[in-house]
């Protein structure tokens, strides 16, 4: 089966499915869903080794250019990813870190959407970090995070101290790396 060209609707013209006759307003945008068919955007290339993925939220109005290497994300996409979960390619990059950014002069809607997406993809609380440690497959960190209170976002020093109390044989090594990062 050959894939159709990505549909592009003209909001001022008649819709291909005849919805104009029913008064429905076309709403699909480039690269998104149309008539229940999901047209997935190809995942962007991964960032250089050691770099977090940068997601640039915007409302398509132009203005400030996204930083080099950033992945463009519309407000609609950000809202949907925050509500329904990020696409698999973005989900896989949570461990390496995802930075959700927007222009300094972005409107409130963009800021709200970016904040929602950030809370979804970059957990800073103990429970979210524990999920990430499980996904990493790092029992020393899982054990250390289980020893931390859930009331705040742990720092490198908190993690290092918790690792110091862990019985896992790898805990001293990761504690040392955490102390190093605390002083980066």
């Amino acid at each position: 089966m050959t894939r159709r060209a990505t549909p592009l609707l003209d909001p001022t013209g008649p819709a291909a499915d005849g919805s104009a006759a029913t008064g429905a307003v076309p709403h699909a945008i480039v690269g998104d869903s149309l008539l229940g068919i999901v047209v997935a955007n190809p995942p962007p290339p991964p960032p250089p080794s050691g770099e977090p993925t940068v997601v640039w939220v915007h409302d398509g109005a132009g203005g400030t250019e996204p930083p080099p290497g950033a992945t463009s994300c519309t407000v609609d996409e950000a809202l949907r990813w925050a509500a329904d979960g990020p696409p698999p390619w973005l989900h896989r990059r949570r461990l390496e870190g995802i930075l959700v950014q927007y222009a300094a002069d972005a409107p409130a809607a963009v800021r709200r959407a970016a904040r929602g997406l950030r809370e979804r993809v970059t957990p800073r609380d103990v429970a979210g970090l524990r999920d990430l440690a499980v996904a990493w497959g790092n029992p020393a960190l899982v054990d250390a995070l289980a020893r931390l209170g859930a009331h705040r976002a742990p720092t490198f020093a908190d993690l290092a101290r918790a690792l110091g109390r862990s019985d896992d044989p790898d805990a001293p090594h990761f504690a040392r790396l955490c102390w190093a990062l605390e002083h980066l």
């Binding site: 250089p48 770099e51 970090l129 720092t155």
Partner: peptide
């Protein structure tokens, strides 16, 4: 070692630079 990368990853969450540094080591 990626100095800027570690600093930027730390802005996401603490496990991100830890994983990068651990893998590098």
């Amino acid at each position: 070692l990626p100095f800027g990368g570690l600093r930027r990853a730390a802005r996401a969450h603490p496990l991100a630079p830890l994983r990068t540094l651990s893998r590098a080591v």
